[in-house]
Design a protein around this nucleic acid. Structure first.
Lengths: 233, 233
DNA sequence: ATCATTATTATGTATATACATATTATGTCA
DNA sequence: TGACATAATATGTATATACATAATAATGAT
């Protein structure tokens, strides 16, 4: 870096990351204060501050007022991954996307669903099941329950051209969500739909969404066990 | 908000999030420019900028120079989850953590491992296998390969008191990682170790770590299928 | 009309300054 | 010694200003 070059917080952040990675700043160690670093990098304190804050958000640093900034002892680094719409996920991989509506009716939701959404024990909800295909092959089976009180207009939707997921994304935003991943064995019906053998493994993603505490939907999405969910950090 | 109250970017961000959630600003719509918003919220443009940037990072807004800021059409919201050390994960849930070293020796790594790490086809690597327990019950089976060139000092470690994961975390930081989730069926050995039936499902997390392009380690961690990985957003 | 050039504009970033706030360190009194 | 008020301090945030940059819109030449 030349002395005259304008210092960007990106460069400073990178340099700090390097120091942490190469243990110039050891885990647990207290690093210099913002003003000192600002002098060292010959930039404004605000610039150092931004670099430090971003690193802290990434879990590499831990900051506390008055106490100062130290290198995280247990770098509980956060992995960030985007949860795309299935169609995009498939198209990004170069596959041809299709989807098939399996069923779509209003019925009494099972207790397991209403309980997790914090709703009354017995409740009529919209139950939509569909299959997403990539290049004609089953990719994801989606089993969804929608709270009609939260999204009444969904009642008249046929889902012939647009999948329930995309419909909800464009018609009902959410402010809060909980996502759960786990593995399971395919039951007979699921195996049939996904085109795999019964008792093969399936990768399950469950999602609960809310707007301002009000429950919107519960989805269970299952992939064949061969599916890989990849994330970088 | 009173007119005299100092406006924080938090409040502004929250207000904007509300407008998006309640569709005052509809998906795909162009929202006012920073200067206009700064006047509306009677604050500095920098403050508006910070709020907007944070929302954009959250995937709720999409910003482009000159083009302006618009509400994301497909809120590909990013889920952020922390990847804690197993011991912390267990202790956070209130369990008692233990771990058992199953094997620890230098041997020729299988091609599947060297290839994914971008190493020479035949290579001697450290192979460590261990089991993490919660309240005495198998929680995670860890099968790890370590590149001795990257971390030579690990050769003399016995892992009698500290798990390989924690050793690496405190002795060898990484700058890059790739994480893969999927489901599989337990093989005989894995089932035996995890205390589950053969052909039950297992939830697999694989992790590859690097420092500055140099491969450090490949780990395959398997949980019984009943394990839940939860994340909020 | 088409293409390359230039102007315009919204966001992106850097800076100095000022004040806010959380937390630790210090000092005082009982 | 201990409890409690007070000072000191590092980070957190707000602001005005200035300039950088990317992308579009306008312009002009061919």
């Amino acid at each position: 870096m030349t002395a005259t070059a304008r210092k960007s917080f990106h460069a400073i952040k990178a340099e700090m990351a390097r120091r942490i990675a190469e243990r110039v700043w050891a885990p647990g160690a207290l690093i210099p204060g913002e003003e000192v670093l600002a002098v060292e990098f010959s930039c404004a304190r605000a610039t150092v501050n931004r670099a430090l804050q971003e690193l802290a958000r990434g879990g590499v640093l831990v900051r506390k007022r008055k106490a100062g900034t130290r290198v995280a002892l247990h770098p509980m680094r956060e992995a960030r991954f985007v949860i795309p719409i299935v169609r995009q996920e498939i198209e990004n991989k170069g596959g041809i996307y299709q989807f098939r509506l399996l069923s779509n009716r209003v019925e009494k939701a099972p207790l397991a669903v209403t309980k997790r959404l914090g709703l009354a024990k017995t409740k009529e909800m919209l139950h939509v099941r569909c299959l997403h295909l990539s290049d004609g092959k089953p990719y994801q089976y989606e089993d969804r329950w929608v709270n009609l009180d939260a999204v009444p207009s969904i009642r008249n939707e046929t889902f012939e051209t647009v999948s329930p997921n995309e419909w909800l994304v464009t018609h009902s935003p959410f402010s809060q969500a909980e996502i759960i991943f786990h593995a399971d064995l395919a039951d007979i019906e699921e195996a049939e739909i996904l085109g795999i053998d019964e008792k093969e493994s399936v990768f399950i993603i469950e999602r609960l969404t809310f707007v301002l505490q009000k429950p919107i939907t519960f989805v269970r999405m299952s992939h064949p066990g061969s599916h890989r969910m990849v994330t970088q950090l």
